[in-house]
């Protein structure tokens, strides 16, 4: 059965994680690794959802607190808190960032054709970062467009500021 499914339509694997009792998913190909939570070195004059930077085997990697980024209530890290290290294309290079989530959940095979467009939501999660909704075992999984999230939701903000400071 499984084999037939994969040959028929484009199927992607998603890694899902829990954030404030909702299940979110990101394309597994953009995930570099998972790391247990650790204290990051805070960076001054950055948005509060930038938790800081960590040393990932000699590479300085910024850490984004997804709870804060999505405007959810902040929570103390617990044993399941995980940093998902993602690699995304940004401009002409690849950037590595960490996102802090409550816990990782599953890996699902999801057909592109099974994706539902996200309805316009009033919540804090900007609709732009949502690629679509999928239903798995009667549960809803929100699939995030991680490239867009990083490029527009994390980096772009400060780029604007930079442009302003240059003109000023």
């Amino acid at each position: 059965m499984e084999a037939i499914n994969t040959t028929q339509t484009t199927e992607n694997q998603y890694l899902t994680f829990i954030l404030d009792e909702e299940e979110f998913g990101v394309d597994i190909l953009s995930v570099q690794e998972l790391r247990g939570w650790e204290n990051a070195t805070p960076m001054p004059n950055t948005p509060d959802w930038i938790q800081g930077v960590i040393n990932l085997r000699g590479v300085i990697v910024p850490i984004v607190c997804l709870r804060k980024r999505f405007g959810l209530e902040d929570r103390e890290p617990c044993p399941t808190t995980v940093m998902i290290i993602v690699k995304v294309a940004s401009g002409d290079k690849e950037r590595v960032l960490g996102i802090v989530v409550d816990a990782v959940s599953e890996v699902y095979n999801i057909n592109e054709s099974d994706l539902q467009p996200a309805p316009s939501m009033d919540g804090a999660i900007s609709i732009d970062f949502v690629k679509g909704l999928a239903t798995i075992d009667e549960k809803m999984v929100i699939l995030l467009d991680i490239n867009k999230l990083v490029n527009e939701g994390v980096l772009a903000k400060t780029d604007n500021e930079k442009a302003e400071s240059v003109s000023a």
Binding site: P44, N45, V53, P62, R95, L155
Partner: peptide, 27 residues
């Protein structure tokens, strides 16, 4: 010296980061 711009972007008043002997990042 390690650049913050490799994976993030320029941060005001910080020219870069470095990794200290204990593996921690210092700005």
């Amino acid at each position: 010296i390690k650049s913050l711009e490799t994976n993030y972007q320029k941060v005001p008043a910080i020219s870069g980061a470095t990794i200290l002997g204990d593996g921690k990042v210092s700005l």
